[in-house]
């Protein structure tokens, strides 16, 4: 029997890291494939995964290992070819496109390597838009207030009217984080959030993301950066579309960091 690289739900329950009865993310035999027949391209293949509430989890692996694909599936911006994916009690792989979009708006915040801010909206408007799409009941005034707070929390209180082109890369990523957190989601998926940033900006961004965990938000961090991975609660290593069983994937929780030398060596970033 093949060992899964991640810790078993029982171990996690013992450690107190997750709620065994209702994990936040539960993926079973998750597969993503593009195309058919001999030209089919495999993204991930039969991944099982559980992530609890309030965890800061890093997914690491070499290019093409499937970590971004897994992140996209968990974030609900891609659909698995097979398998099931339950997030906070909702089986999102069975949702229609519109329901999935609505679910995303209210339940997940996404931070991309390339930020993907809407170029024609300023910082406040970008954050405000996410809130508007997530919750129609929030009035305009409250939207502005919360957007302002979110931007202030990432240190951009003085640049709220700036367009994305008028912000540096690090600042744009902070706007993206503000956009991700403004809806107060249970889960944040950050795909290489520091990949386009210098080291200092990268650490600032990581600190912002790590800080969210203390408020009960789960953060799934997809990264190449071994130093950042070391600072997470748990590391899941991917290789060729599967969770790499040969790498010890679990840190010692809570007090982390524990990315082993074997991890660093095997991941071959």
């Amino acid at each position: 029997m093949e060992l899964t690289a991640h810790i078993s739900p029982l171990d996690l329950a013992i450690s107190g890291s997750i709620d065994l009865i209702r994990p936040l993310v539960s993926a079973t035999d998750l597969t993503r494939r593009w195309g058919r027949g001999s030209s089919a391209q495999l993204g991930i293949d039969g991944v099982d995964l559980m992530i609890g509430y309030g965890e800061l989890v890093a997914i690491v692996g070499p290019s093409g290992s499937g970590k971004s694909t897994l992140g996209a599936l968990v974030a609900g911006i891609d659909r698995p070819t097979s398998g099931s994916l339950v997030i906070d009690g909702t089986r999102i792989d069975r949702l229609s496109n519109d329901r999935l979009a609505r679910w995303r708006g209210g339940n997940v915040g996404i931070v991309f390597q390339n930020f993907h801010l809407l170029p024609t909206l300023n910082a406040t408007e970008n954050v405000e838009l996410a809130l508007k799409l997530a919750d129609k009941s929030v009035g305009r005034r409250e939207r502005r207030l919360r957007s302002g707070e979110a931007l202030a929390s990432v240190g951009l209180g003085d640049k709220m009217k700036r367009l994305p082109t008028q912000l540096s890369g690090g600042e744009q990523q902070r706007v993206a984080i503000a956009r991700a957190v403004v809806t107060r989601p249970r889960l944040i998926v950050a795909d290489e959030p520091t990949g386009s940033l210098d080291q200092e900006s990268g650490h600032v961004v990581f600190d912002l993301l790590a800080g969210l965990v203390s408020s009960g938000t789960t953060v799934l961090l997809i990264t190449h950066d071994e130093n950042l991975a070391k600072r997470t609660d748990r590391v899941i290593a991917m290789l060729d579309g599967r969770v790499d069983a040969s790498i010890p994937a679990v840190s010692e929780f809570v007090d982390g960091p524990l990315a082993t030398d074997a991890l660093v060596a095997a991941v071959a970033l």
Binding site: A75, I77, N97, D98, A101, R102, R104, G105, G106, I110, F112, H116, L117, L118, P119, L129, A130, L133, A134, R179, T183
Partner: peptide, 15 residues
């Protein structure tokens, strides 16, 4: 790409 970003933050087809 812009529309995909809009979708990623919760925008539906109608948006």
């Amino acid at each position: 790409h812009e529309f995909a970003a809009l979708q990623a933050v919760g925008g539906r087809k109608r948006h």
